[in-house]
Write a protein that binds this DNA or RNA. Structure first.
Lengths: 184, 184
DNA sequence: CCCATTACGCTACCAGTAGTAGCGTAATCA
DNA sequence: TGATTACGCTACTACTGGTAGCGTAATGGG
């Protein structure tokens, strides 16, 4: 019984996804989103560019998967609702602050604005799981959770984009208070 | 006494800036930010592409000026502080909702993330005037005003980018309440 | 052990984009 | 009239995301 791994025939894929993800974030960190071309990412990972396109349909898709791998599921720890929310905000702020992650996120987000296919990937694979997890954990209606995500992520990305640096601790605390008050 | 218009020699520039701005927003509205190439914008304005580059150093600079022209100064009307804030939020939400404006804003913003020159233009010519006007009108410290701008603009742009459509009225009201509570 | 199958690296290629150079010409002022 | 500046036009560069096709390397099954 190996239904989960259908044992495909032929040469198996080399196990380089983690290497590619690391190379992607590193390249973005060093050269920015637009400077991190697919050629350079492939070179940094020690892989042919065609291999990247055999696994991901586009640059945006690769970076979306890279962010999914880097972020993981949202931790919903905390005894009460306020703790859950504030720890989730702290978590995403930390993740966006990691080297390359903020620029990657902002870049793929901006590409998605005029690329419906990528917007679909981003909405389905990225936002949707977090939205559902938060909705179940918080018991808030859908539109409230969506607004929460817009406010937190939008604010963090806007600051990152305008200043080039992640948001300072004090501002994150203010933002958290603002949201806790609103959802009281 | 014509110190303000130094009467430069030679052929004067044709008065096409308003035409170019209109053509820019229209083209972005129809084709999106990336689809609105400089060639297409020039064609839509009935102008040579080289003329665009004689007046603006880059696509981002052109669109920044276009947005400045479309937005104008922030109206600081209202008898009390809450009125000022809520009307300012309503104003920027309306402006971002205008055809092409949201996509233009999000596009130039995203380009700026990895283009320090454009980020300087955007920060200096766009964010700075609004920041100063709001600071004087509200009497809040600098970091508070910056955070206010990040929250409002970031949220609106994130929604616009994720859904492709401007934020609904009810969510804008919720956002406004959240901010008024925080700045109480 | 051999063979179909799939993945890999490599090179070459395409289409499209921002931005530039240079030409002849048109409009303005002194 | 002449210097000066702007315009339209064509052609061009440099670069990017993405594709096609080749020979070759790993697998698993018969």
């Amino acid at each position: 019984m190996q239904a989960s791994t259908p044992t495909t025939a032929g040469r198996p894929r080399s196990d380089v996804n983690v290497t590619v993800f690391a190379a992607t974030l590193r390249t973005i960190h060093e050269l920015g989103y637009t400077g991190a071309t697919m050629d350079r990412i492939a070179a940094a990972a020690g892989v042919a560019k065609t291999t990247l396109y055999r696994r991901w349909p586009s640059k945006g898709a690769l970076i979306t998967d890279c962010l999914l791998d880097a972020f993981g599921p949202v931790p919903l720890s905390g005894s009460n609702r306020n703790d859950v929310i504030s720890s989730a905000i702290r978590w995403i702020a930390d993740k966006i602050s990691e080297p390359g992650a903020g620029a990657a996120f902002a870049g793929v987000f901006s590409d998605a604005i005029n690329d419906p296919a990528l917007r679909g990937i981003l909405a389905t694979r990225f936002q949707e799981p977090y939205r559902l997890a938060l909705r179940d954990a918080l018991g808030e209606p859908d539109d409230r959770v969506l607004l929460l995500i817009d406010v937190v992520t939008g604010t963090l990305l806007h600051r990152m984009g305008m200043t080039g640096e992640p948001m300072a601790e004090a501002d994150i605390a203010t933002l958290t208070d603002m949201i806790l008050n609103a959802l009281r």
